[in-house]
Amino acid sequence: MQELIKFENVKKTYNIGEKSFNALDGADFSINKGEFVVVLGPSGAGKSTLLNLLGGMDKVTSGSIIVGGKDISKYNDKQLTEYRAENIGFIFQFYNILPTLTVLENVELVDSIVKNPKDAKQILKEVGLEEHYNKFPNQLSGGEQQRVSIARAIAKDPLLLLCDEPTGALDSKTGVEVLKLLKKQCDANNGENTVIIVTHNSLIAEVADRVIRLKNGKVESNTINKNPKNIEEVNW
């Protein structure tokens, strides 16, 4: 398998008042192309920081992050913006869809930033929202909103899908539906797409190709799951 991501001694320090604390404290790991990855860890372990750095939303204090052979930790703001626009799809715990745009408009939003976006209506159909094109987000349930968010991320056809607690605000049944969609995205494109899910729900790890455990800003373990379970097989 081809290596896609490599973290080399990545540190991220936050200064709060006069104190400082290391959210990531020398993290080292790598991820291969096409993997369905779960990052596990208790709160404060540095999971979200890892995702933010990987997604080009924040900058490292030291160390380097190589994505597809390029060191994105050396990128300036402009390059990072381009990197996000072209390569990354984000999915957040609280969906973060724009409340004043309709479902369809939220997905069409990416048309104005990427060169070859997917057809918004087609994607919404794939995530099962074809009935809700013209609804506003506040008219939808949590699971539906998360599906809009997934549709928006997928519309960019990103190399890398980064999901921060995507099921955290959802009930388990809806959560399963969302996970299925994410897995489907990972398998699409001849298995070239990589999906990284950050969660503290260790059950999700059972379906992952690779599980990375974080503790106090360091990688505790980075294991490959030889026999990932089917999503239906997991006892939620």
Binding site: E82, Y83, R84, N96, P99, I113, V114
Partner: peptide, 14 residues
């Protein structure tokens, strides 16, 4: 704030 963050995360230029 979050919407601005979201737009940025999506890759909209500053």
């Amino acid at each position: 704030r979050t919407q601005i963050g979201t737009l940025k995360a999506l890759g909209f230029k500053n």
